[in-house]
Design a protein around this nucleic acid. Structure first.
Length: 238
DNA sequence: TTCACGATGGTCT
DNA sequence: GACCATCGTGAAC
């Protein structure tokens, strides 16, 4: 179980926040809940940079975003649209506000606990979307500032699993600096959020700005076939 | 099955 | 008022 995952060390986090977003694909979010341990494998992230108008820290520190200006490897949790909590991983040096938004993950263990928080939804939808992810893992403002590089209520880990093919695209749901390719996702995963056209699975779009950016030479059909195989496997089966 | 639409309502500008 | 989202609904593919 989770004892096979080791916490990520702060030293191994890439200094570049865009690199951190890519680095976190395939890593684990581990959450100690009163009703059990929940583990999820990250399949989608977005980077938010200090000179990026979509970043909360762009206009300087506020009571809400101050943890972004703290040390790397900590949780920045905020409420979006007044209804959903968002889990971010802080990065960059103290005084510089950058972070990676965890957008989606694949359930690994603790599906019962997640469903108790999310209600009866398909397994695919448990953690597909940043608000859903926080809801399923019972993450809220109380986790703002938590150290994610040490075992605790909420931390990041690695089980050494080989990462898959990672795609890159524009970010979702923003208007400012929306053209920057700072979104990363596990290609072929059904647990990734967002429209198919952004995930390398949809029909090609005329608008090049919304087209996914391939980082490797793999064939899309190969990825889909691989995913169907993975789908048949019980996420709880170890 | 996927997407567009409208309503929702904390926090910051 | 704008905003890093979600849900239910309904229509298109």
């Amino acid at each position: 179980m989770h004892e096979f995952a080791r916490p990520l060390s702060r030293d191994e986090l890439p200094a570049s926040t865009a690199d951190l977003a890519r680095f976190l694909i395939g890593k684990l979010v581990l959450r100690a809940l009163p009703d059990g341990f929940a583990v999820a494998r990250i399949v989608e992230t977005e980077a938010y940079l200090a000179d990026d108008a979509a970043c909360h820290a762009f206009r300087g520190p506020t009571p809400r975003n101050r943890t972004m200006f703290g040390p790397p490897g900590h949780a920045y949790v905020y409420r979006a649209y007044g209804v959903c909590w968002m889990l971010n991983v802080t990065n960059a040096a103290i005084g510089i506000g950058e972070a990676v938004l965890i957008r989606a993950a694949e359930p690994v263990t603790g599906l019962d606990a997640m469903m108790r928080h999310r209600g009866e939804v398909p397994t695919r939808d448990l953690l597909r979307g940043p608000g859903r992810l926080a809801s399923a893992l019972a993450i809220d403002r109380s986790h703002d500032g938590a150290d994610l590089c040490a075992r605790g209520p909420l931390w990041l880990g690695s089980d050494g699993a080989a990462g898959g093919d990672i795609g890159m695209s524009t970010r979702i749901g923003i208007t400012r600096d929306a053209h920057l390719p700072l979104r990363f996702y596990l290609k072929g995963s059904r647990f990734v959020s967002g429209p198919a056209a952004l995930n390398g699975q949809g029909r090609a779009r005329r608008n090049a700005r919304s087209a996914p950016v391939a980082l490797d030479g793999h064939v899309a059909g190969e990825d889909r076939a691989h995913d169907r195989k993975a789908d048949r496997e019980d996420p709880l089966d170890r």
